[in-house]
Amino acid sequence: MTRLLKNVIRYGLLTLGALVMLLPFAWMIVTSLQSPTAVFAIPHTWFPSSLQWGNFSKAWHAAPFARYCFNSILVTFITTLGQLFTSILAAFTFTHLHFCGRRTLFAGLIALMMVPGELLLIPNFVTLSRLHWIDTYAALIVPWLASIFTMFALRQAFHAQPRSIYYAARLDGASDWQYLWHILVPASRTTITAVAILQIIASWNSFMWPLIVTNSDRLRTLPVGLTSFTSEAGTNYPLLMAATIFVIVPLLILYLGLQKYIVAGITQASAKGSSL
């Protein structure tokens, strides 16, 4: 009996918490399907009598969301791939190659993980404006092509592969380059997927940097485009919520599909903390 009671309490609390978590999402969807005036009706309704599906196409055309979406996809895609490429090469080097200053360089790079990226905002902005890169795709992408965290997580994964596999591949006639791409990368695909997804989330949702280095509509990413849309939408909450859904839904789908990798990735991420 007490056990049943305990479980009732447990599930009750968890359900209550889950409702709080879901509330903003649910309210966003409900609002997006109502007419601009209906949302102001008090008491609120969770089940609008008529669903305004047209809000989505109205919102989509009210601002260049197609363009924002394209920019977000492009920037996220190239940043993630580029970051994986630079990190894979470096992680391999720190795992298998012998060279002068290896320990020092690695320790130095790890120490950089402590530096808050925001501190670098101003000088980076200055650098980019000297390069005349402000308001270009390069500004959105190039500074993010290296991530020490990604490199570190991959090095941990590469390190976990038995060294005998490296030796076996070399004896089988593979060069370092061939071993890296034919054996090591495919063998570490779980970790690679995990860090890639974390990076996709970070890139897609990144806000402050694209806000600062873009001026024109042409180059805005979804989150920046969305905030500029808020002033146009004013109090048209249904349109605003519809636009919000454009930003949130792609990642929600990705998340629900690849959840186990994200959890694995965060567990990896905690290794960052253990390097304190």
Binding site: L171, A174, S175, A187
Partner: peptide
Amino acid sequence: DARNRNIGMVFQDYALYPQLNVMDNIAFP
């Protein structure tokens, strides 16, 4: 260099390539 010595080696832990099936493992060299 090891890769030019034309040596076949079986490691104590076998060192099979985890993501390749048996056919591809044997055919890798």
